[in-house]
């Protein structure tokens, strides 16, 4: 994508030095969006594991799979749009970092009133005692950060292979 932008810039600068044209032609991503984003490339050996969520491209949302964030802020007249998006990203990164190497699925964030429920599938690589420590820690820290009750809804699987839907 970067190289295409550079080519564009070169072409544009060759044709004309006007910045108006440059800005109007700068949008390169929409064309790629339908083809590439949210989809995974097939490997040569066909050994790349995909979960069910990854195996279904974005246009199957609400048909074969559902959303990863559940909230009402993106509806008409919804409140706190940017905050919600940012907080969701924060929660995802926090979970992936705190449960390092243990999260086997997408992190699902469900908001009801001021209550945030965070669901994920976790590998049974650490002892239950440690898991309980992390549970208490993440719930409390996120609650303190976001100023609302946070509940973790975890499910555990024996290994990452249990969530693999197919290999491509």
């Amino acid at each position: 994508m970067n190289s295409s932008i550079f080519k564009l810039i070169q072409n544009v600068s060759a044709v004309s030095k006007s910045s108006a044209i440059l800005s109007s032609q700068f949008h390169t991503s929409p064309a790629l969006c339908r083809v590439v984003s949210g989809k995974y490339r097939i490997t040569k050996k066909r050994d790349k594991p995909l979960t069910y969520e990854m195996a279904n491209p974005p246009h199957y949302i609400a048909h074969r799979k559902t959303w990863n964030s559940w909230n009402t802020s993106s509806l008409k007249d919804g409140l706190r749009r940017p905050e919600t998006a940012l907080e969701d990203e924060f929660i995802r990164r926090f979970m992936n970092g705190t449960w390092h190497g243990l999260v086997c699925s997408e992190i699902i964030i469900k908001r009801q009133f001021n209550h945030i429920r965070v669901a994920a599938i976790i590998r049974r690589a650490v002892s239950p005692t440690k898991m309980y420590f992390l549970l208490g820690y993440s719930e409390e820290l996120m609650a303190n950060w976001l100023h609302c009750p946070v509940t973790l809804e975890l499910q555990t699987v024996d290994s990452f292979k249990d969530v693999v839907f197919k290999y491509i």
Partner: peptide, 21 residues
């Protein structure tokens, strides 16, 4: 033993979080 250990571990995590806070 596990009942006690699990409940107290969760609380230890909560304590750690509020210590950071």
């Amino acid at each position: 033993y596990r009942k006690r250990a699990y409940a107290l571990s969760a609380e230890a995590g909560r304590k750690a979080a509020s210590w950071i806070r």
